[in-house]
């Protein structure tokens, strides 16, 4: 399967902000956070459609989220994920002795998700990562 090397940034979005105020277990939050914004041309190159599942991998882990065509392009080679449990499956925990992990500028790879791979809802994601319900 074709892969692409990219730089992963994370941050706040207004939808993530309103989603979290609807409740951390709400559908609004899930839909606003379990996503990855990708440049239009990069999506085409990988053959991923807007709204399809995409796999984001870093040396710290990998996660399946929904690909979203970025309306703020062009930004080839840069992908963007809102703060939340999904990005943290792949975020860089290194703090360089400052207390602050590296949430921005992480080396990552993206590829289309296989048909067996799906976006986990919060409960399943927590169960998979922490073994608790």
């Amino acid at each position: 399967m074709q892969k692409m090397k990219v730089t992963l940034l994370s941050g706040r979005t207004i939808n993530q902000g309103t989603g979290k105020e609807h409740g951390k277990t709400s559908q609004e939050y899930y839909e606003s956070v379990a996503i990855c914004e990708v440049d239009t041309n990069d999506l085409d190159a990988l053959g991923i459609k807007d709204g399809a599942n995409i796999k984001v991998s870093t040396e710290f882990g990998s996660i399946i989220v929904k690909a979203k065509e970025s309306i703020r392009g062009p930004h080839p080679g840069i992908i963007y994920m809102p703060y939340g449990p999904w990005i943290n499956a792949v975020a860089n925990p290194t703090t360089h002795s400052t207390g602050m992990p590296s949430f921005k500028g992480i080396h990552a790879e993206i590829e289309p998700a296989t048909s067996a791979e799906r976006v986990l809802p919060l409960h399943e994601l927590l169960k998979q990562a922490f073994g608790k319900e």
């Binding site: 710290f60 992990p101 922490f130």
Partner: peptide, 29 residues
């Protein structure tokens, strides 16, 4: 649990954890 990198969150959850929160957050769960 939602906002820390995975290893840090895992070690937090592994030990006894008390949460004071009005909301059902990932950490509260």
């Amino acid at each position: 649990v939602a906002n820390f990198p995975r290893v840090a969150a895992q070690n937090l959850v592994k030990n006894p954890l008390i949460v004071i929160d009005p909301e059902k957050s990932a950490t509260a769960l």
